[in-house]
Design a binder for these strands. Structure first.
Lengths: 222, 222
DNA sequence: AACGCGGTGGCAGCAACGTGCCATCGCCCG
DNA sequence: CGGGCGATGGCACGTTGCTGCCACCGCGTT
């Protein structure tokens, strides 16, 4: 039985002081999961995050960021994300909440943040235990693989589907023929097919199968 | 800065000795992610797992198991899973590998297993640090939400898709017409369409759109 | 009233898809 | 060898989906 190398720090300043060198020391891979972008927009943390994104340009270092949809609510956040992507990072959106910021560097070090407590300093836990890091990395990977790419997420334009399109989509998903679907929706066959064609255009699909695939992938059906 | 309560044990026997009471002490929730069911089929570990699944019947305790498709390869494993489900556990299948066994009990304690090393004893890490447990739990939750339920997974018959079907599926997803797809796969048009029809039968889809939808939902494309 | 404009619907023609039928081929078994 | 069997491919025909064309309608503008 061994007491492992785990340390807990309170507040951003102490994190930077104790673990700043870990951020700048990332060599091959930097992955993080977070609810939004607030954390690393804070002045103290920005110091640590800066060198990383710069290094992403230089190759060799892959940066994966897994975020909640909450990171896309306002235009400022979207703009920031575009910069991050332009810097070479891969960004994906997970449909579930990610209340705890998680960072894994080179599959060797990880940093987990506790829940944000208003007023008090936030707690961070820094670990290099291979079992812990490996386990967290595997879970991250599972969440990452299941998440949708940022560009696909934005291109899919889930929110921009109006009620009509959703109705068409449900009819398609129910497996109806165009004729019955049109009757159900109170549309003429011609108009229904127009709707389907429009839908396929927005989904950038050239076949109905492909359209269904996109819908399923983006999870915008049920 | 605090050295947290983390301990590492080697081998199943020591795990049971040191942490067996944690398993039996699960009160509200027991979640685990694993590649397959081998771990808890081992004699020493079965001692620990036994009381848990029995308790699941009695209510109050929810058991969530997240597994890789590897857990479904043979019939024995499937039978075991059916028993687990019958005992009240919820089982889901993640499309990504989960090489590290992960267990979280009541969101307070977690156990991470290192990679299985043939010959030597396996390492387990036991932690109660709230930040670590919370972070891992959030990641688990993200992976869990994205995974497909066991019954849906079996009904969708994802694992029973052979290489041929997958090729057809890729052609469909690429948006090709039947004719070009058939040429790409070196099949006659007739046979290709047979394959598509069979695929749609197994997916219980009455339209290609619906088939694509299922494929996207079950995440069995890429 | 006249006009333009966007949305709708009917029609036609074509492309794509679905499927029943049958000939063929390879293969295993009696 | 001969026969059954499953997989394949060609063919034909029916269904479904896709789209260009035009007519119509409602509405607001000029």
């Amino acid at each position: 039985m061994i007491a492992d190398q785990v340390l807990t720090v309170r507040g951003d300043a102490e994190l930077v002081a104790r673990a700043g060198h870990l951020f700048t020391g990332a060599r091959r891979e930097f992955v993080c999961a977070a609810r939004d972008l607030d954390t690393w927009s804070r002045p103290a943390a920005r110091y640590a995050a800066g060198p990383r994104t710069r290094a992403a340009d230089e190759g060799g270092l892959t940066v994966n960021k897994l975020l909640s949809p909450a990171a896309l609510v306002d235009e400022a956040a979207r703009a920031h994300l575009r910069r991050v992507v332009a810097a070479g990072a891969r960004v994906r959106i997970s449909s579930t909440r990610l209340p705890h910021e998680t960072i894994v560097i080179d599959r060797r070090v990880m940093i987990l943040a506790g829940r944000d407590v208003p007023g008090g300093p936030r707690e961070f836990t820094v670990t290099t235990s291979p079992a812990l890091v490996g386990g967290v990395y595997a879970l991250f990977d599972a969440a990452w693989e299941a998440a949708t790419d940022l560009s696909a997420y934005l291109a899919g334009d889930v929110p921009h589907l109006d009620a009509d399109s959703r109705a068409v989509l449900r009819a398609l998903g129910a497996g109806h023929t165009d004729e019955t679907a049109a009757r159900l929706l109170g549309l003429s066959l011609r108009t229904y097919r127009r709707r389907v064609a429009e839908l396929m255009t927005t989904l950038e699909a050239t076949s109905r199968f492909q359209a269904g695939l996109r819908v399923g992938e983006l999870g915008l059906n049920g």
